[in-house]
Design a protein around this nucleic acid. Structure first.
Lengths: 326, 326
DNA sequence: TTGAAAGCGCTAACAA
DNA sequence: TTGTTAGCGCTTTCAA
């Protein structure tokens, strides 16, 4: 039923090969034939069948994006960067969710491989990476984003987490604060570890004692931000500043303070500057990650590999964070 | 380089057809051959090439999702519902952004058609739908979500916007309020129109005079919510309750109140109950849309059409909203 | 500059 | 129960 090159060829009185050449802008084709063919393409409303083309040329011009969760502003801001950049290359994007677990992660990877994506961009859901080696066996390039994993070597794009934390803490100390609490993520994740490291390093460099009781670890979720802020506020001597390791815990922490009508003078510094961060009332300092750029850099790196350029593999690209003070 | 059915067939000492039958669980195949073939598949690490299969069977088991913007919690919550439901059917999802304009919308539709998606789910970026008829010419089923459009007939899944507004306003009136302001969206969009209609109808039913000066229209963005709340608060006699037509304007409005240290006793009722709505401090009433269900219903309807069941076309599915009072 | 023909990897008649 | 064969729609040698 749908129009094929053959139909166009017949109408134009040329061969299918010629039509294909016109479509692919092959230079060695006469202007006259080209125009004739184009006219017929329009008349018939011909649309390329990318499936057939892909089978022939072994390229789908499609990239997979695998992340722990879809309705997540942070991941999707990166996805936007990815999609915008991919579009420049004429590529499109299959988005999958691993729902935060390894089994589904592997399952989706296999699916993407079956779909013959030209490359895969992954925001890992854990610190485990062994199952990603399946991608290698399929010879499909992959780029890790936001987090690194164990037992899997690949290009990666992420931010300089240590310095991000460090500069925020430094700024807070220079503003005269000394009791700075910490709400961190799951320490098995590289991001959580690095952000904690920046915090500790800054305190040490400024000779501020590290107080274990105002250092809390959760799992980067709204809920754990809520609970940990509750724990901090329940202390006999609460901190007067709290550093929070990501956006969602920041939301949870704020929620706790709002719901409990907090009147204690507390300020928050938090990783991530999202559109909504500005209405999180206790927040004075933000560490902005360049989300769109993370996405576009991931694509650029991936494209290099897709084009079989293996320069400097594995490239670990660390982008700078930016300190936002309100 | 990659393993094909032929390779498996050779190793197993059978024909490619037999391998194909094993893969597709064809019942008329002996247990012995099946086991032998499966063993070879595992030994070689064979993975189906969906591109080749798709070309042959004229189905890609892929659906396109086109929305105005990717990092948008509301759209992505629907996308999550879509992805989860698609997974049950063994389908995957190509996500595209129209960036809110008609030209890109058409361009992405064409791309999806070229990729031979089996169906398309669209959150339209405007009220115009004529360009969507291109999809019909390709015989690809489509389902509209959240909004209806002019000049294009298709199945659609959205909420009962009128009643959503109505019940919220009714609740507010019953709580004793009489001066209820309104912040609406672009009235060319069906959602904006319907939500406004519910507001007006409730006021009329309860014999409350309609005051033009406390009724404002924006464009569903954070910025316009911010500005319009500013306009309302600048009035000589501001309303004591404000109804806001969507999540993003709600954020903007709250932002205005927070930034301007508002002390005037004002309450907000707003469409959409997102994860963050609970920290928007002035909000007392929310109209929850069942986002995940919108997504899954869209998929179910689409699947019907993909399976060539044209029962009751076009189906306009109106889901109920839920009133949340804090 | 163009056409004929082969083939990408798979599935589905048809035959055995 | 299995194999042979053709062909999905496209691109790309090779030959003209």
């Amino acid at each position: 039923m749908p129009v094929t090159v053959k139909d166009v060829a017949k109408l134009a009185g040329v061969s299918a090969a010629t039509v294909s050449r016109v479509i692919n802008n092959d230079p060695r084709i006469s202007l006259k034939t080209r125009e004739k063919v184009i006219k017929c393409i329009e008349k018939l409303g011909y649309q390329t069948n990318d499936i057939a083309r892909s089978l022939k040329i072994s390229k789908t011009h499609t990239v997979g994006f695998l992340c722990p969760d879809i309705p997540n502003d942070f991941f999707m801001s990166i996805a936007k960067g990815v999609e915008d950049e991919l579009r420049k290359y004429g590529y499109s994007l299959i988005i999958c969710s691993s729902n935060g677990n390894i089994d589904e992660e592997l399952e989706r990877i296999k699916l993407l491989c079956s779909k013959c994506v030209d490359g895969i961009i992954i925001i890992p859901s854990t610190n485990k990476g062994e199952h990603f080696n399946f991608i290698n066996s399929m010879k499909i390039p992959a780029v890790l984003v936001d987090r690194l994993v164990e037992d899997f070597t690949a290009d990666a794009v992420l931010v300089d987490n240590v310095n991000g934390s460090y500069s925020a803490i430094e700024h807070i100390i220079n503003s005269g604060y000394k009791r700075i609490g910490f709400i961190g993520g799951d320490m098995r994740l590289t991001t959580a570890k690095e952000r904690y490291e920046g915090y500790i390093r800054a305190l040490k460099d400024y000779c501020i004692p590290i107080e274990e009781d105002i250092i809390k670890f959760g799992d980067f979720s709204i809920e754990s931000g809520y609970n940990l802020m509750g724990e901090l506020m329940a202390l006999k001597k609460c901190p007067d500043y709290v550093f929070i390791s990501n956006y969602f815990m920041h939301i949870g922490a704020t929620k706790y303070l709002v719901e409990n009508n907090n009147s204690y003078p507390i300020s928050i510094a938090s990783y991530d500057d999202m559109e909504l961060s500005s209405i999180l009332g206790f927040c004075k300092v933000l560490i902005r990650q360049p989300m769109t750029e993370i996405g576009s850099r991931a694509v650029k790196t991936l494209m290099l590999r897709i084009e079989d350029d293996s320069t400097g593999f594995p490239q670990i690209i660390r982008l700078k964070t930016q300190l936002i003070c309100k």
